[in-house]
Amino acid sequence: MAEFGYIVDSHCHLNYKQLREDEAGAVARARAAGVGCMLAINTKLREFNEIRAIAETYHDVYGTVGIHPHEAENEPDVAVAALVERAQHPKIVGIGETGLDYYYDNAPRDMQQVNFRAHIAAARETGLPVIIHTRDADEDCVAILREEMAKGPFKGVIHCFTASQMLADAVLEMGLYISISGIATFNSAKDLQATVKTIPLDRLLVETDAPFLAPVPHRGKPCEPAYVMDTARFVADLKGISFEELQEATTANFFALFDKATPPEAAKDAA
């Protein structure tokens, strides 16, 4: 395994207002904290140019292309070709975020499912991983993933995992990864903490989902990528391993999954 002296925030929203107002500062604070790479997530296709521009600005920031399930009604009938075309950019390394959210139901469930399947098709065509959001939709999420996997393999990660042990076991069986956010640090997250202990270290990522879900001890503040260090330390303690082991594994996992991304020291040397 390569030696990584940093950690990766595998999911953040640098174009959202709370971070965009001090984008350079947020990136600088993350670097100072020991975050060596960040993945800026696209949630609305109409905002893709913002994500691309952010990824182009920083050697250690990559981006994705996708439509959040909340936006499935606002951006309906997404063409697989539209996702694939945007994914050709060298700094775009993933498809999503996409998935199912039955908690808020901000878009009709059938439209969310169509949107989800289109993203999976784009992931399969490009070979890039799909970033999956799922909330209160475990059974449908697993069913769609299994149906789509039967059509042809694809890579992916369940981001900001808060779901059941059943979903964790199912997606791990399919070869997908699981990413843990600051929610795991909350006192109320006992069931999630129990599930985190069962996730194999070679399938684990960490993230902030910034500007949301700031971990303890930052609760009540806007989240930012630097805070992934707090989540990582908590998860390491939870799993009974050193922070260095957790850092090494999750960073290696990120570059194994998002294999179009170049570790930042190599990207900087090549710039």
Rank of each mutant, 00 (worst) to 15 (best):
residue 159 H to N: 10
residue 161 F to E: 07
residue 113 Q to Y: 00
residue 200 P to Q: 07
residue 51 I to R: 07
residue 117 R to S: 07
residue 146 R to E: 15
residue 72 A to H: 12
residue 116 F to M: 12
residue 229 M to S: 01
residue 230 D to N: 11
residue 97 E to D: 12
residue 252 A to N: 03
residue 243 F to A: 08
residue 145 L to S: 08
residue 192 L to G: 10
residue 177 Y to P: 05
residue 182 G to Q: 12
residue 154 F to K: 10
residue 159 H to A: 05
residue 130 V to G: 01
residue 182 G to S: 05
residue 120 I to D: 05
residue 19 L to Y: 04
residue 16 Y to E: 13
residue 271 A to E: 13
residue 149 M to R: 14
residue 228 V to M: 06
residue 75 E to Y: 05
residue 1 M to A: 15
residue 58 Y to N: 03
residue 182 G to H: 04
residue 198 T to L: 15
residue 251 T to H: 08
residue 124 R to V: 10
residue 192 L to N: 09
residue 248 E to H: 13
residue 163 A to M: 13
residue 6 Y to T: 01
residue 67 I to N: 13
residue 222 P to R: 10
residue 194 A to F: 02
residue 202 D to R: 04
residue 193 Q to V: 12
residue 199 I to M: 12
residue 166 M to V: 13
residue 42 N to W: 07
residue 159 H to M: 10
residue 38 M to R: 01
residue 230 D to W: 04
residue 9 D to K: 11
residue 60 D to V: 00
residue 134 T to F: 09
residue 130 V to T: 15
residue 256 A to S: 14
residue 44 K to D: 11
residue 153 P to Y: 01
residue 81 A to P: 06
residue 237 D to T: 11
residue 114 V to T: 14
residue 83 L to F: 09
residue 179 S to E: 03
residue 50 E to L: 15
residue 36 G to S: 04
residue 111 M to Y: 14
residue 32 A to Q: 12
residue 60 D to S: 14
residue 168 A to E: 06
residue 85 E to R: 14
residue 230 D to G: 03
residue 151 K to S: 10
residue 66 G to L: 11
residue 3 E to M: 15
residue 264 P to E: 12
residue 201 L to T: 05
residue 222 P to S: 07
residue 115 N to P: 00
residue 44 K to C: 03
residue 212 F to L: 01
residue 31 R to G: 02
residue 174 M to H: 07
residue 218 H to P: 02
residue 209 D to L: 10
residue 8 V to T: 07
residue 12 C to F: 06
residue 232 A to T: 15
residue 250 T to E: 11
residue 179 S to R: 04
residue 199 I to N: 03
residue 222 P to A: 09
residue 128 L to F: 06
residue 29 R to Y: 08
residue 164 S to P: 03
residue 54 I to M: 10
residue 20 R to Q: 11
residue 175 G to P: 13
residue 102 Y to S: 04
residue 34 G to V: 02
residue 22 D to G: 00
residue 121 A to N: 02
residue 126 T to C: 10
residue 105 D to V: 07
residue 42 N to E: 13
residue 49 N to I: 02
residue 32 A to W: 03
residue 110 D to M: 08
residue 165 Q to P: 12
residue 113 Q to L: 15
residue 216 V to L: 07
residue 25 G to N: 12
residue 21 E to Q: 15
residue 137 A to T: 06
residue 263 P to R: 11
residue 136 D to P: 07
residue 77 D to H: 14
residue 222 P to L: 00
residue 90 P to Q: 10
residue 263 P to G: 05
residue 158 I to A: 04
residue 200 P to H: 13
residue 78 V to K: 09
residue 96 G to W: 11
residue 27 V to G: 00
residue 102 Y to A: 05
residue 42 N to A: 15
residue 194 A to N: 14
residue 46 R to G: 01
residue 241 I to L: 12
